[in-house]
C-alpha cells in the first residue's frame, strides 16, 4: 500500500485543466435562472443525482466525474446523499411513470433555491423511449428544468462544461 500511496504523491497529477463552461448552457441559463436568492450559495453546489428511469449509462458517466481525471470536487461541486442537502438535482432518464412520484417528492424535498439539470437525451424529451406507455417524457414535463445537458450518454467533459456553466451563472448573481 505504501508503494501505491508514495507513487501517487511523486507522480504528476492526472487531473486535467478545467474546460470552458459550455456556451449554449450559459445561454439557456441566462433565460431561465432569474431568481434572486442565488447569491447566498457562492461557488459551491451540492448535487443530488436522481435516476428517473435511465438505462444507467448516464450514471456511469456521472460517476466518472469523481475520478482523478475530472475531479469535480475541486470546483466546489459535491454529490450528496439526500435531496434535503442539495442545491441541484441532476436528473436522468425518460421519467418512467413508476418514478414520476418519487421525482416529484425528491424535488419537493429539496430546499429553495434549487436548480434542476436534466442529463442525457432521454431527460430532454424521452429520447428513444418517447411514446411508451410507461414513460412520461422529458424531465420538464414533471419538474421545472433549468439546464439540459444532451448526449447519449453525455461524456464527463460535457457534464463538466454544463455544470461549470451553472456554477458560473450562480456565482455571477452574487
Amino acid at each position: 500500500m505504501r508503494k501505491t500511496l508514495l507513487e501517487s504523491l511523486t507522480h504528476g497529477s492526472l487531473t486535467e485543466p478545467a474546460p470552458a463552461p459550455d456556451e449554449s448552457a450559459l445561454a439557456e441559463l441566462a433565460t431561465k435562472v432569474g431568481r434572486t436568492a442565488q447569491a447566498r450559495l457562492g461557488r459551491s453546489l451540492a448535487i443530488r443525482e436522481v435516476d428517473a428511469g435511465s438505462c444507467n449509462a448516464c450514471e456511469l458517466e456521472i460517476h466518472a466525474l469523481s475520478n482523478a481525471f475530472y475531479d469535480v470536487e475541486r470546483f466546489g461541486l459535491r454529490f450528496v446523499a439526500s435531496p434535503r442537502h442539495a442545491d441541484v438535482l441532476l436528473v436522468t432518464g425518460p421519467v418512467t411513470k413508476n418514478m414520476r412520484q418519487a421525482l416529484e417528492r425528491t424535488y419537493n424535498a429539496t430546499p429553495d433555491p434549487k436548480w434542476v439539470v436534466a442529463v442525457g437525451g432521454c431527460a430532454v424529451d424521452g429520447g428513444i423511449f418517447r411514446g411508451s406507455y410507461a414513460c412520461v417524457g422529458g424531465v420538464s414535463e414533471t419538474v421545472p428544468v433549468d439546464l439540459h445537458i444532451k448526449g447519449c450518454p453525455p461524456s464527463p467533459m460535457d457534464l463538466l462544461k454544463g455544470l461549470l456553466a451553472l456554477l458560473e451563472h450562480v456565482g455571477a448573481k452574487r
Binding site: I128, F129, Y133
Partner: peptide, 24 residues
Amino acid sequence: YTHKGIESLMQGASLEAAAKLANR
C-alpha cells in the same frame, strides 16, 4: 421503477431502431 416498456417499443420497430433500444 425503471420500467420503460422496451419490449412494447420493440414491436413493429425496424431492426435498426430495435438495435438502438437493445443497446440501451
